[in-house]
Every structure is written in C-alpha cells, then in structure tokens.
Amino acid sequence: MFKRLMMVALLVIAPLSAATAADQTNPYKLMDEAAQKTFDRLKNEQPQIRANPDYLRTIVDQELLPYVQVKYAGALVLGQYYKSATPAQREAYFAAFREYLKQAYGQALAMYHGQTYQIAPEQPLGDKTIVPIRVTIIDPNGRPPVRLDFQWRKNSQTGNWQAYDMIAEGVSMITTKQNEWGTLLRTKGIDGLTAQLKSISQQKITLEEKK
C-alpha cells in the first residue's frame, strides 16, 4: 500500500525546468507551479508516452532531478554507511541512485490517469530550513484521497528550496528505503546496493492501464 502511495505522490513532485522555475526561495510556489507544469506535460505528451513509456525517463531527467536534492536524499538512505564509504564508492552510488530515480519516478508518472491535487495554504517560513507541505491527491475514479507531506529543505548556501522526502501515513519514503535496503547494505555494503540500483534502473517502464 505504501509503495502505491509513494508512486501516486511522485506525480506531483516533478519540479519546473530552470527556464520557467518559480521563486526558488518559496517552496509553496515551487510546489504549486511544479504540480501544474507536471500535470500539463503528462496530459499533453501522452502520444509520446504511450508510444514509448521510457520517454518518461527524459521527462524526469529534464523536469524533476535538477530540483530534487538527489545527493542529500541518497546520503540519508545510506545512513551510517555513508561515512564509511570511499569517495569513489559515493560517486558510483550517487550515479546509480540518480539512474534509479529516473526509472522509479518514471514508473510513478506512468500512473497518471487524470488525477488532480490540492496544496495546503502557504504558511510563514520564518527562519525554518525544513518545511512540510501537505498535498491532497484526488483520484477521478473514486479512490479515497491521498494526503501527503512533502519535505522541502532550504539550501544554506543559495537560499533555494528543494524537495527531498515524502511522508505518507506517518511513514517517510527515506525511512522506507532504509528499511528495504538495510539488509543488503549490511551483507554486501554500498557496492552491493550500487549494483542492485544499476540493475533496477535497467527495467523498462510500463504503463498502468486505467481501472
């Protein structure tokens, strides 16, 4: 169930391209415009997507990853294993993690069937560096609404905000991946996880038929 919630949630996290980005210092504006741009692209490019579902990787690479804190999220997933990894191991892992996100997020976007969304009203940021933004996803086919909290983090150097995690039903996506990959990290280390991520990233994206 959580895996499905995570995939549905990713439908609204794909941010804007650099040329049309919203105010990078306001995570609420980023979330709002990102959702609108993403849904528009999914709707307008269905012919290309249906002809070649792996085209979704391109959308992810162009529109999402430049505005997601990939390395920060990847380091959180590694936890204690990050500090013990060599620079070469980290570089290989982050490259594999990025390719994994292209496949995983692309597969999530393949679930698009006309969903709509509501974003919580903007709250004062103050001096906060981590801000959760509640998004409610509404399914046109009558499924119950899904309420999610996207975690946005302020870059201490640039002042810009980027998304790095999502919490559904009190469970963090980062925590879920830590639990899912924990045994592999304990037995085969970061190299074993890197190899698995490379394998997963090679899987073809498949479209979910409308139910």
Rank of each mutant, 00 (worst) to 15 (best):
L56M: 15
P15V: 04
V135C: 06
Q123N: 10
V8K: 02
Y81D: 11
Q203N: 05
N26W: 05
Q36D: 06
D32H: 12
Q62N: 12
Q123C: 14
W161D: 00
V8D: 02
Q202E: 07
T183G: 09
D54L: 06
A108P: 13
V8I: 14
I133V: 12
A92E: 13
A18V: 12
L30C: 11
Q103S: 14
Q103L: 15
A35V: 13
Y82H: 05
Q48S: 09
E45W: 02
W161L: 03
Q157A: 09
Q202V: 12
Q178F: 01
A22V: 13
A104V: 09
T176F: 03
R4N: 06
Q107A: 07
Q118H: 12
Q107V: 12
L30K: 12
N179M: 04
D23M: 15
D54E: 11
T20H: 14
T183S: 07
P145S: 09
G79L: 00
L56R: 03
M111H: 03
P66S: 08
G79M: 01
D149Q: 03
Q69W: 00
L76V: 11
R57W: 15
P66G: 11
L109C: 15
G142R: 09
A34E: 12
V60P: 01
L185V: 11
D32Q: 09
Q62F: 05
A95V: 11
K211I: 06
D165I: 00
Q80A: 11
E99P: 15
D191F: 04
L11Q: 02
Y105A: 00
R41P: 02
N141R: 09
V135S: 05
P140E: 15
L42P: 02
V146E: 03
K188S: 10
I167Y: 02
A73I: 03
R98P: 08
N141F: 08
S156D: 02
T194V: 05
I119R: 11
M111V: 13
Q36F: 15
M166H: 01
N179H: 08
D149R: 01
K83R: 11
Q178M: 00
K204T: 10
A35G: 10
T20Y: 08
S199G: 13
M6W: 06
E63A: 03
K128M: 12
A22D: 09
T58N: 05
T194K: 07
A85G: 09
L197C: 10
K204I: 07
R143T: 03
T38W: 05
Q202L: 06
I130T: 04
K71E: 02
R4A: 10
V171N: 01
M31T: 02
E91S: 10
N155F: 01
Y164D: 01
A34W: 13
Q151R: 05
L56P: 06
P144C: 04
Q202R: 09
Y67N: 03
A163L: 15
T25G: 13
M31Y: 08
T206I: 06
R153Q: 01
N160T: 08
M111G: 07
D54K: 04
A9R: 00
F39A: 01
I190W: 03
R98I: 04
A163Y: 05
K71Q: 05
M166T: 10
K177N: 15
Q107P: 05
L16M: 11
D149K: 01
N155Q: 01
